[in-house]
């Protein structure tokens, strides 16, 4: 059994209304995928394809309507025991909305440390936060600042430091670079890649940008209107896409030639 198993997951959103019969919107339809430990699985799809819904289900902040997710042998749901949550973390799309603007960087990064009781005492927490900040390329002094004092790329680094603080084995990256400049995108992607080889992390990488996928992914899944229409290893998918939609996606992506 693979490290991450998504088994026949469906999600229907009900629009509750007082005056009309409830109508369901099917965001995910029987999606199954598996991720090997230490690998990156890239989930590609356009807006509204159900990528983020799947991410929320995988990290256990939303429940599947049917089907199940297991990570490292633990069943994932909103009501799963807290200690099982340590292994799973997430890096978000918006560098602005993903950090509470009222909290200092220290408190943001230390929140998972406190929540799981990882460090004992203030001194140990400060030391761990410093280590984490340096690990993602920030400075110890930055702990005293507020998020608004950083650029978008630096904020994503804070987000990554927070995600690393609970020593996770699996990180869901929900379009972590789509709000950044191209040059900064590369830096953040390189950081994520370095961390993966250093810490043996497993990634579920959600994106609509195929250029990003090419540098990161081992395995690629294409999601369209809630259905996983194609799944291949990265090399195979770029070489011989099977589905027409995948071909269109590849054709539509701007070609980057690296000199």
């Amino acid at each position: 059994m693979s490290f991450v198993e998504v088994d026949e997951v469906s999600r229907v959103f009900h629009k509750r209304s007082l005056f009309s019969k409830s109508q369901g919107v099917q965001a995910l339809k029987n999606v199954s995928l598996s991720i090997q430990q230490g690998e990156t699985y890239a989930l590609v799809g356009e807006s509204g394809s159900g990528k983020s819904t799947l991410a929320r289900i995988v990290v256990g902040v939303d429940n599947a309507s049917s089907g199940q997710v297991s990570i490292a042998g633990h069943q994932i749901s909103t009501s799963m025991p807290k200690e099982n949550r340590r292994d799973i973390q997430m890096v978000f799309q918006s560098p602005y909305a993903s950090l509470n603007p009222r909290w200092r960087v220290h408190d943001l990064v230390a929140e998972p440390l406190r929540a799981f009781g990882i460090t004992q005492g203030r001194k140990a927490t400060v030391q761990r936060v410093t280590e984490l900040l340096e690990q993602v390329g920030l400075q110890a002094d930055d702990a005293r600042k507020f998020p608004h004092q950083f650029s978008g790329g630096q904020r994503q680094r804070i987000s990554i430091a927070r995600a690393l603080s609970s020593n996770p084995k699996f990180i869901v990256c929900d379009e972590p670079t789509s709000a950044l400049d191209v040059s900064v995108q590369a830096q953040v992607l390189n950081l994520l890649k370095d961390l993966q080889s250093e810490l043996g992390l497993t990634y579920l990488f959600i994106t609509h940008d195929l250029a990003v996928v090419k540098t990161m992914a081992h395995q690629i899944g294409v999601l369209k209107q809630g259905v996983l229409i194609e799944e291949q290893s990265a090399d195979d998918l770029f070489a011989s896409p099977q589905h027409q939609y995948t071909k269109d996606l590849l054709a539509a992506a701007p070609v980057l030639s690296v000199a």
Binding site: R56, V59, G60, V61, K82, R85, R86, I88, Q89, M90, F92, Q93, S94, A97, S98, L99, N100, E111, P112, A115, F116, S159, R162, S166
Partner: peptide, 13 residues
């Protein structure tokens, strides 16, 4: 609806 709330939810707060 902001992501920092999801970040707190996923560590089980």
């Amino acid at each position: 609806q902001k992501e920092y709330i999801t970040a707190s939810r996923l560590i089980g707060l």
